[in-house]
Design a protein around this nucleic acid. Structure first.
Lengths: 203, 203, 203, 203
DNA sequence: AATGAATGAGCGTTCATTCAT
DNA sequence: TATGAATGAACGCTCATTCAT
């Protein structure tokens, strides 16, 4: 990796960092490339040297954020063997990733949704990727006997949605102060639903 | 209701109908007031006679859509007495309302989110209203002994999120073809979670 | 004069009164016909029944204001016979007319100027009318031996300008509190100029 | 001064030149930024790159014109020592500055007045600056014994007004063809008033 | 690689005027 | 006479994108 490559990479990264902040603060439509350039201590031309368009910057951010979320979740699940523990690990990984980076949460769960048709596909793909991850785990857990047979497609989407909504509420209203505090309740709900754990079952 | 009132109201309603279509198709930022005027067979000035701003049109739509959703859900729940049946009714009402009006679903679950800070408050309020409705039901059901004690705040948000996400997937990907098809699975997940109904329990 | 004529006249006058207030407050360009209608307790259509256009309202006001100023000045001069006293009377009449009606002063000296080419002609005519009045007086006074021969055209314009500027300053800055307070100084300046009255001359 | 600075400055100046012409021709309200852009052989965006708003362009012009007028007058007065000669120099400087630039005269004496409350302050300031210049001169001349004691505030405003009105007439009606032709008459009026020079006084 | 001046299409909003009632 | 809903042209301003340097 040559010095100039490094410099170029860091410049590109500075642009992405600035873009994340601006997009999260202003939303996609209201974000100005000028502002991204200013925040990244570059010029407008500099931004356009590294990215072909404003849209491409946003897509880069979504892709990176999605990849980060997936990777963290996968890694956390891989560290466990027990099916239930795998699920717990996934839940915690998502809550921790979003809880530690509010701008990222805002970008992925809020701004990306209304940014236009072009991004819906990308977002659908990400949702699908994540659902696939959860679905694969559910399939395994079902095969393992930990869970009864179910429609894993819908179950994974619902799992994802329940988690998303608590994160979204946290982003929009600031409640609860620490996102991870929802973990015990959410865990119980995901596992046992509203009716709670069956008698004689542990935890 | 005089004739002129009727006419004026109908013009206003035509604008709202057109706006719903345009906002759902283009998103808030990309929607042009010109296009709304064209679709409602009015002039731009006509639109601005009935609404002070583009933002006000959007807010009107969100408020109306939110009120419709709440009202339908409340009405459906009121028709039942059994706690479990109330929950089922709420779930079905939401799925049917959204399933019967994809543009409305897109507006409320997708476009309103990324439309800017001004709308987040309104949306938060709606989310809170809906969560309160569910929370009140859960409180009752817990008191009734149908559900064990739980953190109803988080539970209602998670309930809402699981439903929203399936609706969102339907809006974005068209799956499943009929939204209501998710009802049985979603119902089971909400009630019993991933681990399914306890042995000896009926459905 | 029939009752309806009276009513019509009074309605028309109410529009003019409202227009004077709005034009003086907002300027010609920023004044809205809607606002004039509101202030005159009429509808927009009502305004347009009495006047063919916004421009016509403004011209009516300018004409009326100009006529009032001319008439007051002429009447005041007619009441005197001594040439110097005639001049004093004219000066006082102008100061009193403007001093008693700030909106009128603002309209004639400020707003009418920048309102557009269409009004410049009208304003020029008014200026010319007034200058003619002063010029006729000066001609008489010169013939009388009260003043030495002079270029009465320029003198009348300068007279008008000196007065106008003090009124304009009053409108814009509020100084002096009572416009008529400038009378003694202005009188002396107009009669004797900066060098003051000649030795042996009385006031 | 680098080449790019020169180019940027010249573009900015071209915009100002075009704006002066358009504002003088159409008035502030009727002037379109599009037209300014066309006349300066730029694009609308180009105009807005150099100025934040239409209002700012207008203010720039007023400030520059006011500064030019003040500077020319001050310079002309500084070149003389005799009080009377200083006054003559000031009068000539104003007449020549306006007489040589009709658009500038129109901007400062006509369009700026009716352009709105925002500009009145600026214009008041300019009037005050100019009045201060004249007042300072009058104070000196009084101390020198050239003029008798007087209310210099009002005298300077009247001086300014008499000159302005002749310039305004020239702008509006084109009379006299050469503005400077009013100089002798105006000079005499300002010095001696309508009653003319005292017997035994020279010039 | 980087800069920033320049472009120009597009948009929200205003408002004088018209006209059916 | 009077009303006020409707029209539509006009305008100030923004901003993603380009490109000469």
């Amino acid at each position: 990796m040559s010095g100039s490559q490094t410099k170029s990479e860091s410049r590109r990264q500075r642009v992405l960092d600035a873009a994340l902040e601006v997009f999260a603060r202003e939303g996609y439509g209201n974000a100005a490339v000028d502002e991204i350039a200013r925040l990244s201590a570059t010029s407008k031309g500099g931004v356009y040297f590294h990215f072909p368009s404003k849209q491409a910057i946003f897509l880069s951010l979504i892709d990176a954020a999605g990849a980060l979320l997936l990777e963290r979740t996968e890694r956390a699940m891989a560290a466990e063997t027990d099916p239930i523990a795998k699920g717990d690990a996934a839940l915690l990984a998502v809550l921790r990733t979003f809880g530690g980076h509010r701008a990222l949460a805002r970008l992925l769960l809020i701004e990306a949704l209304g940014a236009g048709r072009e991004f819906n596909q990308r977002l659908s793909d990400l949702h699908a990727d994540f659902a696939r991850l959860i679905a694969a785990y559910l399939d395994e857990a079902v095969a393992d006997g930990a869970f009864p047979p179910m429609d894993v497609d819908i179950a994974s989407v619902a799992w994802f949605g329940a988690v998303n909504q608590t994160v979204t509420r946290w982003v929009l209203t600031g409640e609860p102060e620490r996102l991870e505090d929802v973990y015990p309740t959410l865990r119980s709900l995901l596992l046992h639903g509203l009716q709670g754990p069956c008698a004689g079952e542990n935890r």
